Computed example of a mutant assay.
Amino acid sequence: MYQQPLAVTIAQIEGAINHWRERRPTTDAEHSMLCAEARALADVYGLLIFSGATSVEYSTLNGVQRDALTAVLR
Rank of each mutant, 00 (worst) to 15 (best):
P5T: 06
V44Y: 05
A7K: 14
T27G: 12
S59A: 12
L41K: 06
S32M: 10
S32Q: 12
I49Q: 12
Y58E: 01
M1I: 04
G46N: 15
D67A: 15
V56W: 07
G15D: 08
G63L: 09
A36H: 14
T27V: 11
A36T: 11
E37C: 08
E30L: 13
S32E: 15
L48E: 07
T54A: 08
R23W: 06
S51C: 02
D28S: 09
Q65W: 07
L6Y: 11
D43T: 13
S32C: 00
T60E: 10
A40K: 08
H19Q: 06
A16D: 01
R39S: 15
E22L: 14
Y58R: 02
I17T: 02
S59D: 14
D67H: 13
V8I: 14
A7W: 09
E57D: 15
H19W: 13
V72P: 04
H19S: 11
Y45R: 13
L69S: 02
T60W: 11
T54W: 04
A16K: 03
L48F: 06
L34Q: 10
I17V: 10
H31P: 00
Y45F: 12
A40H: 04
M1C: 00
L61G: 04
G46L: 10
R39H: 15
T54K: 15
A40L: 08
L41T: 02
A71D: 06
T9Q: 02
D28R: 14
G15P: 01
Y58L: 01
T54Y: 10
R39N: 10
A40V: 05
G52Q: 03
S59G: 01
A71H: 09
Y45D: 10
A36N: 12
L61A: 02
D28W: 04
Q3F: 08
E57P: 00
Q65G: 03
T60L: 13
G63V: 12
S32K: 11
A11G: 00
F50C: 11
Y58V: 00
I17D: 03
H31A: 07
